[in-house]
Amino acid sequence: MSATGPAFHLTDIQGRPRRLWTQSLSWMLFLVGILLYSQFSVARHKENPEDRVIPSGAQLIQGVKSAVLEQPEEDDPLDATATTWQRVSHGMLWRDTVSSSRRFFISLLLLIPAILLGLHMAVFPYAEAFFLRFFLFFDKIVALSLLPILFIVFGIDEWSKIMLMVIGVGPTLMLDTYNIAKSVPREQVVKAFTLQSSSLDVTYRVILKQILPQIINSVRLNLKPLALFLFAGEMIASTDGLAYRIAIMRRHMGMDIIIPYLLWVAALLFAMDALLRFANRRLHPWY
């Protein structure tokens, strides 16, 4: 260590990078990605100015514009006098985002009973005996293999896709909640009973309250699998949605639309993750 502070060693476990360094390093890979993309795009456009595999910056901007402002092909065209807001609200990106988000949030709501079931399995021995073995087995069923059955049972409408997401993520979230609730020290439960708690008090006011931040973290980790099942359902049988549009654009080699769509989906998931992380910090300062 020097007199002015710790020496700069990239491989030093005890290193303490300053704030500026941390910020710069965290953006570095984004920058490298953009540079590499530009490099490849420029190289391909030199060979073929009409190349659509790696669209140029101008093509991407045009793609974003058409995704935001243009209607899907299957819809009736708007009047030429339509305002910008009307064009945006009838545009591909907005309509697809609303459709996919509706499915996504309905599935998230339907996952709440799965979380509660996991909690009850961990707390009530009879519920554990009844459900645990079955869900340990059910969790191992590959959810996508259930898709044909779901299409037969629920049709190819919304519910088959929503159920695919619930069946895909529900058991994992349930077993995760079960494990988290089981890890609450036994002393806490005993103590709560000596403080005249009922079984419901212990379940909801002692255990659930304690494990809620960990459950929220578990939901955060399961956002991507949830989106994955949503995309699988939408790509196979849908008439709208973000994944449907990507599947359609693939047929037309529309990379100028696909890439903004991919980035938009990632940004939405990142925002949701950040929101949950923020909520966790604000609601559970003790965690």
Binding site: E187, Q188, F193, W286
Partner: peptide, 17 residues
Amino acid sequence: IDARCGYVPQKYALFPD
């Protein structure tokens, strides 16, 4: 287990939340 006995364990005695 009921409220006839108060209990002070070695650790995890308080609710962290």
